[in-house]
């Protein structure tokens, strides 16, 4: 008897408010490997999906930003644990998506998991490192605390489908922001698998929303959305960034300063991405008996 078994193909959907809907537009687009072979159909998100994702992210913001830093650290670490558990799947997907040799794919996935752990350890250091007790000249107690900026639209790197994605996503949520991520257009599969990890971890629904589709189609809607507070345009073609930055100015969004070319994600990340999405709040109170 023949032992050939037909595999059950996975349907890749959007990750929105903790659920996995198809695009409201009903559209999908084929995703191929680097050799051009068909891998899967990905949902092709519409502007309405983007709008719904912003609503979900805003709804989740209060809870996530209000969670204790210790709790956010625990939740993020749990994500790393689950990534580790799906290591082989990620290696396969990264390898297929990026056309990497198995050994390189393996080290890339390992780096992504380690990066996640690194940011998991940051959550409860942010206020210590970036906050301050201000020695003001007067009878006042003054302190400054960093707070998350709000809802961030992240255009994930187009090349590095997992390590790059983790490197831009983890610092956003580590400090308590929530986000809408537009996955790399042609290499979205690791992002969708990551969303499955997030869904089964303790990250509350809506904290991370992942859209797959056409970056150029979705970007203007997110860049001009009044309820989006910040933009990471790293995954947007340099030629398109100017218009998006102009749109962002309409509501004074924070726009990350990102290099034109995708950086080497294996380098130590530093604190720049954490800092870029923090607001400093200074509080004053008199000191008197």
């Amino acid at each position: 008897m023949s032992e050939v078994r037909l595999t059950v193909a996975k349907t890749y959907k959007l990750y929105l408010g903790g659920a996995f809907p198809r695009s409201e537009s009903g559209r999908s687009y084929p995703v191929t490997d680097q050799a051009g072979a068909f891998l899967a159909n990905a949902a092709q998100a519409s502007r309405k999906d983007a709008r719904d994702a912003v609503v979900a992210a805003r709804k989740a913001f209060g809870g996530w930003s209000g969670a204790t830093a210790y709790n956010r650290g625990q939740v993020l670490y749990r994500v790393a644990e689950l990534l580790e558990g799906r290591r082989d799947q990620f290696i396969a997907e990264v390898s297929a998506s990026e056309g990497l040799k198995p050994a390189v794919a393996k080290s890339t996935v390992d780096a992504a998991i380690d990066r996640w752990v690194w940011y998991a350890g940051w959550t409860d250091k942010i206020a210590t490192v970036f906050g301050a007790a201000n020695p003001v000249a007067g009878p006042y107690f003054s302190f400054s605390v960093p707070e998350p900026t709000g809802v961030v639209a992240v255009f994930a790197p187009q090349s590095s489908s997992l390590l790059g994605l983790v490197s831009v996503l983890a610092p956003v949520i580590a400090s308590g922001n929530t986000c809408v991520v537009v996955a790399g257009e042609d290499r979205p599969l690791p992002a969708i698998t990551l969303s499955e990890v997030l869904a089964t971890s303790d990250v509350p629904g809506g904290v991370v929303n992942i859209l797959t589709g056409r970056t150029a189609e979705l970007a203007p809607w997110l860049a001009s959305h009044a309820d989006v507070n910040a933009l990471d345009l790293g995954g947007v073609a340099a030629a398109n960034r100017v218009e998006l930055e102009k749109a962002a100015a309409g509501t004074v969004k924070r726009v990350l300063r990102v290099p034109v070319e995708e950086p080497d994600w294996t380098q130590a990340p530093g604190t720049g991405r954490l800092r870029a999405l923090l607001e400093t709040k200074t509080v004053w109170h008199p000191m008197g008996a």
Binding site: P139, Y140, P286, M287, G288, A289
Partner: peptide
Amino acid sequence: GLPGVDAVGVE
């Protein structure tokens, strides 16, 4: 029940 006085403010 009288309102408090903030020392720094009144000074």
